[in-house]
Structure formats: structure tokens, C-alpha cells
Amino acid sequence: MKKIKVGRFLVYVFMIIASFLSLFPFYWMFVMATRSSAAYNSIPPTMTPGTQLVENFQKVLNEIPFFGAMLNTLIVCLVVTLVVLLISSLAGFAFAKFKFPGKNFLFVAILLTMVIPPQLGLIPQYFLVAEFGLLDTLLGAMVIFFLNPLGIFLMRQYISQSVSDELVEAAKLDGCSNFRIFCNIVLPIVLPAFATLGIIVFTATWGEFLWQFTVLRDPDMYTIQVALSSMNTTSNVDFGMLLSGVFWATIPLVIVFLMFNKLFISSITEGSVK
């Protein structure tokens, strides 16, 4: 019995250390966001919040168009998420409930596109977007993310499990067109799957960097990731300002996560394990 107690105590110690290491960078980021750069050079290091919260954020606003970049990111993420949900549920419906020549071949082809590393097409994609005049536009920043093979896979799984063939047949006998079946029957049923896929797509798009770093050169068009990274390109960067920017850009997502953390976590297992 004593042995079990010691074991359990050690388990708790281990979990507390792990949680501390997970959370510490967030706390430290907050501390730095409230301190002047001088605090950074103090020995021992400052570990408590200071009074520069507002000043540091004002410096951020002078350095980058913070709110514009957040808005740009929000627009990019929302549009990408909606487009992916629409494309995926339509295609998932077709693959789950219709018979047509080439169905299996086309489905496997979609899954195979997942294997292509996104960097393979990077250079031609850049010139393609330039050709259409979409450099430094939000449409250019989002267009390559409309392709989401995982979304089609997930929606096919979900629709074939939760929309019964009888329901589709009955609606057809009542004279429903296929598109009305999709809108009035399939869409309401797949809303939970939309939440899962929506979270996966939204968070992935939020954190995207390489593509936007490549096509966005005008600071007014920056997404928040590009804007934040642009603060770090001078050698004598003000750490208080830098981490203030990171802090305010991170906090909205942390709040959303804390509200829906179970949904977030289940979206990971559904997106990868199923």
C-alpha cells in the first residue's frame, strides 16, 4: 500500500513538472510583455509582471499594423474554413451516397494528393498567383489552402456513417433533387463533423507561415504570423515589444481553446486516427 502511495505521489510530481514546462513559456511571455527591455538584462531574471503592458503594446502598434493583420488573418481563416467545409461536404456526400464510374479511383487519387509535400509546387504557385495579380491580396494568401483532401476523407466517413441510405431514398421518392437532399438533409446531420473539421482547418490556417511569407510583401496585407515575424528581422529588437505582440496575438486563441478544449482535443484524434 505504501509503495502504491509513493508511486502515485511521484506520478503527480511528474505531471506537475510537465504541466509547468508546458505553461511556463506562456507565463514568461506575459511577464516580458509587461516589462521594459532593460528588465531582460537583469540578474537574476525578472519573473514577475511589470507595468509596461500598455506601453509595449503601443510600441507594437507603431511597428506593425497589428489589428489589420489580425483582421486579415481572421478573414483568411474564416473564408478558407467555409470553402473547405463546402467543398469537403459536397464531395464527401458524392463519395458516400452515389454510385458513379471511377469512384474508387478518384477517391484514392484524392488521398494520394496528401502525399505531395506542399513545398513541391511552391515556386510555380507563386508565379501562378502573381500571374493572376493576386500577390499581396488576401485571396492570394488563402487560395492554396482550399485544397484539403483530409476534409473530403473525414466528411465521406461521417456522411456514410450517419446519413442512412433509406433517408436519402425516401427523400428522392418525395421528389427532392439531389442538391435539396444535400442542403436540407445532409447538412443538418453533418454539423458536428463541421465543428471537428472546422477546428482543424481554422487552427492550421491560423498558424500558416511559409506561403503567406512568400506572397505577402505589403505590410498592410500581412497576416499576423508574417507581421510578428517581421518584428524580429532587426538585430536589436525590443524584446518587450516583440513578446507583447506575440502575447496579444496568442491570447485570443488560448481563450477559445480554454472554452472548447474538449472539442479541440477530440478534433485531433478524429482528424488523425479515424
Binding site: P25, F26, W28, M29, T203, W206, G207, F209, Q225, L228, S229, M231, N232, L242, L243, V246, A249, T250, L253, V254, F257, F264
Partner: peptide, 10 residues
Amino acid sequence: ITSMVAVALV
């Protein structure tokens, strides 16, 4: 859930 850019900067 933090972005790679944020992680790299912190």
C-alpha cells in the same frame, strides 16, 4: 494551439 511563429519568437 500556439502558432509556430509565436513559439519561435518566444
